[in-house]
Every structure is written in structure tokens, then in C-alpha cells.
């Protein structure tokens, strides 16, 4: 064995990714005994009218949520100030969306992002939105900045479809990343086409999918209107919080600890092996804005 294995006992001891331990059915929460100074900021914003009972996304509400989130994230006065910190007028910006699912990235959110990027002064021809075709889209191939936006949902092989995983379409051969339940998906972020370009990550928590069985699983009864967006610059931190949320929902729904299967350990390895970000919930400052009902985390 090349290196010391990380075992279930390490999770129980809390010596490694708390969110992953949670996903494996073990109990963790923000603010444990070994509380450290937060190093990473994330903003969770919710609005009760973001999505209606029929699943229709309210574009005005979504725009406001995004605006409030980036203002809080960057601690600035106005949304445009935040966007100017992320994007320059001369940037070529790819919005990496996600069409798989459901749930998929809502068009209303894509429009809200595009609107603010245009306001920074980026030329319309230098902005594009894509998912499966990114390697054929000029803007993505020449991009200088990326916005990574996708919903969280359970996944039959990687445990969850995550922000980390959302870049898999930047590799022409996605099966390269399948080994050991996609353990090393974070390697994707080293690809030249994406490395160092991501300015903002948005984990869409409007109607998360928290459970499923089988390769094509989707059952609306395992989704709920959480009506949230999780916004930050660290994809690993956001995915860790997303996992924590899914596990909390599973505990509530199934009335017992119910680990996500397979264990989405690619989130932990993105931190411990690949140093892409932090998966330690104690090192994340989570700012909560808006609707508080049934917030779960």
C-alpha cells in the first residue's frame, strides 16, 4: 500500500472531512470542539418565492438572490462592485452550466449571471453558456474566466453531482475519472482549459435531489423546495456544505441516519489529496441570508 489509508475510523474520529463523514452516516455539524478560525467564506441565500409549487423559477427573485449573495460574499456595497472584483471587461467568460438531471441549472440563473457580467463591460461575444459542448465552444476554449454553476443531486457513481464534478465535460474522456467512485475528480481542475480561471461557484439548492436508486435515478418525491443558492469562491467548501445539507434532509426524511451511497469521497480528496479547497466545515464561515424556515444547516 503506497500511503496510509483513510479509514472509516478516521471519519469517526473526525480527523478528516466532516461533511464526508456526515455523508457516510456519521454525525458532524458546524462548530465542533476543535473550532478554528474560518478561512473560507460561503453565502447561503434562500427565498420562499424563488421556485413556486409547480417548479417555476422566479427570475426577479433569483436575480436579487444572486446580487445579495455576491455583496455579502465580497463585503461590498453593490453587486456590480463584487462582479468587478471577479471579472474584467476584457475577460472571456464561460458560464459552466449543467443540463443533466433534473434538476439542472435554471436558465433564469444563467440570465442573471450574464446580465451582471455584461454590466462589468464584457462584450456579449465574449460570454457563453455551456455544458456538454464546452470543448467545442470557442468562448470556453479561449476563456480567461469561468463561472461554475450547477445543482446538487445524488449520483449513482460519484455519490453526488458536485461543483467539483461539473468540470468533467472539459475532459474529452470522462471515464478517465471514474476510478474508485470518481475519487480524484479534483484533477479536472488542473486541466489547462480551466486551471486558475474560476471566479465564482454557485451550488444551486433550489430543488435538490437527496436520494435515488439506480443509474438513471430521479424521483420528484426525493426533491424538495429548499429555494436556496450557495455562493462562494471555494468549490470544495460549497460541496461540503451541500453534502451536509443533503445528509440533514435524508435524516429528516428517513427519520434515521442514511448515508449517501456511494460515499462522495471525491469532495474530501479534493481537499486532502489535491488541495483544491477546504472540506472542513469548521474552517468555513457560512453567512446565511433570507428565508430561514427549515434551513436544516
Amino acid at each position: 500500500m503506497e500511503k496510509k489509508p483513510i479509514t472509516r475510523r478516521d471519519f469517526i474520529r473526525g480527523a478528516t472531512c466532516a461533511a464526508l463523514g456526515t455523508a457516510a452516516g456519521l454525525s458532524f455539524a458546524f462548530g465542533g470542539e476543535e473550532k478554528a478560525l474560518p478561512l473560507v467564506r460561503a453565502v447561503l441565500i434562500r427565498h420562499k418565492d424563488a421556485v413556486d409549487a409547480k417548479g417555476v423559477v422566479n427570475p426577479t427573485v433569483i436575480q436579487k438572490m444572486m446580487d445579495d449573495a455576491v455583496v455579502a460574499l465580497f463585503d461590498v456595497e453593490k453587486p456590480i462592485d463584487a462582479w468587478k472584483l471577479m471579472i474584467k471587461p476584457e475577460d472571456i467568460v464561460g458560464i459552466k452550466s449543467n443540463v443533466s438531471g433534473p434538476p439542472s441549472t435554471p436558465g433564469e440563473l444563467e440570465k442573471a449571471l450574464t446580465k451582471r457580467i455584461l454590466e462589468v463591460g464584457v462584450s456579449k461575444k465574449n460570454i457563453d453558456i455551456g455544458d456538454r459542448g464546452v470543448l467545442r465552444q470557442k468562448v470556453f476554449l479561449n476563456s480567461t474566466a469561468l463561472i461554475n454553476v450547477r445543482p446538487i443531486r445524488t449520483h449513482h457513481w460519484s455519490g453526488v453531482g458536485s461543483l467539483i464534478k461539473n468540470y468533467i465535460m472539459f475532459d474529452p474522456n470522462p471515464p478517465n475519472y471514474h476510478d474508485n467512485y470518481c475519487a480524484d475528480l479534483a484533477k479536472l481542475w488542473e486541466l489547462p482549459v480551466v486551471k486558475g480561471k474560476t471566479r465564482l461557484n454557485i451550488l444551486v439548492l433550489l430543488t435538490p435531489l437527496f436520494h435515488g436508486i439506480g443509474p438513471h435515478h430521479y424521483d420528484p418525491k426525493y426533491t424538495w423546495n429548499y429555494n436556496g443558492l450557495l455562493v462562494g469562491t471555494d468549490p470544495v467548501a460549497l460541496d461540503s456544505i451541500g453534502l451536509h445539507l443533503l445528509q440533514a434532509k435524508r435524516r429528516e426524511y428517513f427519520e434515521k441516519d442514511s448515508p449517501i451511497r456511494p460515499t462522495p469521497h471525491h469532495v474530501m480528496f479534493a481537499d486532502t489529496r489535491h488541495k483544491l479547497g477546504t472540506s472542513d466545515l469548521n474552517k468555513i464561515e457560512l453567512i446565511k441570508l433570507g428565508w430561514e424556515k427549515d434551513i436544516l444547516i
Partner: peptide, 14 residues
């Protein structure tokens, strides 16, 4: 990998 699906034991094939 199957074992880890049903009972996460370790990240390696111990």
C-alpha cells in the same frame, strides 16, 4: 469499490 458502496471501510483496498 462495491464494499465501499455498502459499507465505507477505507479509501484503499485494505
Amino acid at each position: 469499490t462495491s464494499l465501499n458502496y455498502h459499507y465505507y471501510l477505507a479509501d484503499q483496498n485494505i
